[in-house]
């Protein structure tokens, strides 16, 4: 009798804890922050600088992209337009209205359409990015990589930076050309 009472109480505590822990965890992962391991060499040397021996683990901030606001140079994770199950991590090179000189895309110059981004990996030629599939829709954005959290020796904040030779040629909207000055 005492045994069943204890078992039932234990079961109820487990169920109530379960109904708190799972939704809270899922919501935090969906809305606030997500942790992901970076695979592949497409973002070398910023991420995974020494190949596959110790893959970097990054913290993806999902709160800052809730209104789909990103700036040039941010490292973002995007749902792959070719495979909806896969996420890819790239650097934002152009936002809507930018004129971009492409590298190996079907057109030599591209104006990024409204609501789209031009994303590229840092490792040119070894990256599956906008030079292959064109501009990606802002609705596919998943999170902004804000920190490298593993391995501990590489703990650092990821600062937005655009490679100097990949600046947009011209912004048609003329709205946010904060990175064109220098």
């Amino acid at each position: 009798m005492a045994q069943t009472g204890f078992g039932r109480r234990y079961f109820r505590a487990f169920v109530s804890g379960f109904f708190v822990a799972v939704p809270v965890t899922v919501t935090v992962l969906d809305r606030l922050a997500y942790v992901a391991r970076v695979e592949g060499a497409s973002m070398q040397p910023s991420l995974n600088p020494d190949g596959g021996s110790s893959p970097d683990v990054v913290l993806l901030n999902r709160w800052t992209v809730r209104n789909y606001q990103v700036q040039r140079g941010d490292v973002v994770s995007v749902l792959s337009p070719k495979n909806p199950q896969q996420k890819i991590i790239k650097r934002v090179i152009g936002i809507e209205g930018d004129f971009i000189k492409t590298m190996g895309y079907k057109n030599r110059f591209v104006r990024v359409p409204d609501g789209h981004l031009w994303i590229e990996g840092d490792h040119h030629g070894h990256s599956f990015d906008s030079n292959t599939f064109g501009p990606v829709s802002l609705g596919l954005i998943h999170g902004r990589a804000s920190h490298i959290i593993w391995p501990p020796s590489r703990w650092q904040r990821i600062e937005p930076s655009v490679p100097s030779d990949r600046r947009p040629l011209l912004n048609w909207n003329g709205a946010s050309d904060d990175s064109n000055d220098d």
Binding site: Y68, D114, L138
Partner: peptide, 19 residues
């Protein structure tokens, strides 16, 4: 689960305005 089939009506984000 990737079970969307031809003929289904879906709600999607607009590609030009994600909101």
């Amino acid at each position: 689960l990737c079970r969307i089939q031809k003929g289904d009506i879906v709600i999607a984000k607009s590609p030009f305005d994600p909101k």
